[in-house]
Design a protein around this nucleic acid. Sequence first.
DNA 1: CGTTCGCTTGAGGCCGTTCAAGCGACGTGG
DNA 2: CCACGTCGCTTGAACGGCCTCAAGCGAACG
Lengths: 223, 223
Amino acid sequence: MHLKDAVKNSFLFSDLSPESLADLEKISIRRTFGKGEMPFHEDEPANSLFMLGSGSVNLVKSSAEGKEQLIRTVKPGEIFAEAALFSGENYPVTAIATAKSIVYSINKEKLLKFISKKPEVSLKMMGAMARLLRHLNSLIADLTLGSVSSRLAKFLLTKYNETGSKSFDLGMKKQDLAKKLGTAGETLSRNLSKFKDLSLIDIKGSYVVIKDLKGLKKYIEKE
Amino acid sequence: MHLKDAVKNSFLFSDLSPESLADLEKISIRRTFGKGEMPFHEDEPANSLFMLGSGSVNLVKSSAEGKEQLIRTVKPGEIFAEAALFSGENYPVTAIATAKSIVYSINKEKLLKFISKKPEVSLKMMGAMARLLRHLNSLIADLTLGSVSSRLAKFLLTKYNETGSKSFDLGMKKQDLAKKLGTAGETLSRNLSKFKDLSLIDIKGSYVVIKDLKGLKKYIEKE
DNA sequence: CGTTCGCTTGAGGCCGTTCAAGCGACGTGG
DNA sequence: CCACGTCGCTTGAACGGCCTCAAGCGAACG
């Protein structure tokens, strides 16, 4: 895949002029990562912004004991490590490719120079960061204020809204979903069984069918 | 207090030219809030950016059941509700003044116009958002990956680093500290007692003396 | 002097964790 | 083609951290 194509889906750079695009290409580096490889680690000095061309990347925080919290999963066209651009320290999270991925990295200083000539890009950049801020805010609220079953119900309903269908695939390993929900695999397993016993859903493998929409919605509120 | 003085401590606007400052003043509204009053609520449409002139403001997320998680406490000169600027929805959090505060609010569209003429301000704005992103990232990690005692130890050591002294005041009500640490008041109380019993600290009221720095540090790692 | 407020302390219970064992699906090598 | 190992998931049992409810206590304040 070429940068030109990647950029089409990109929020940040989608309507750049051809000349600008050529400039951007000069300062960006294209790399591919296999499943499990890490584009960057949270204890590395941050010197680049990244854009995902294809594949999928998870952003996680990990503790000394090896526990992990999934902060965000990046989809093609999205940028990540945006905080890296503006503070001279290390990356705040670790990036892990969960599938073969094409990643463009852009050196911090060069990008800053590039951006400063293009106010539209700055605005979009801020927009992207603002959306992230919202995401993190509600993630905090979720993790702190709610229970696992409420988070699970919310996840299922979000999937339902995204796909527009009552039956869908989880789209990730249950282990990963557990991490996303900030819990252990066993606990997720039990909660899925509970929902199944209550006839709220049916589940076979990673394939889910929502049977009782209202019932699930109640679970979101019910702490 | 006049906007001019507030701006001196402000990260965003600190080195604006006098003319720009005059422009800024035209589009900003000065308001004062008493303790407990709310400059904005998380279910209100977001139409302004805020800057704290003096006083102190807490940003919280609250759940249906009235539980609250403290996301950030804003200090004079800092801006807040920055995410509001770039996405047309509601405020992501609720702001509560914890002391008599002077707050400047700036209409979203007007500020955007103002900013777009000043790339330096955009850059600073992004810097501010980047710092926030980092803050939220580590908050999530803390809340998810660690225990209350670890978070408490981290808080105490941060205070120690900030003040440079082993004895200091908590700087807030214990209730508020509990919310900041994402726990209940009772649990905080027990943990403080535990640290005291272990001779890691001494505490009288909200006045703390650190007695065993290494002991506290161990608690941070220890899950 | 009584009330309110912030904090502490106790008792009980629940949710989620960890450790362990077991199970089916899958792939590989004999 | 089957045996075996691995992997992801499930299930059970026990433990424990944190929460809630409730009572009590000192300090501040009217």
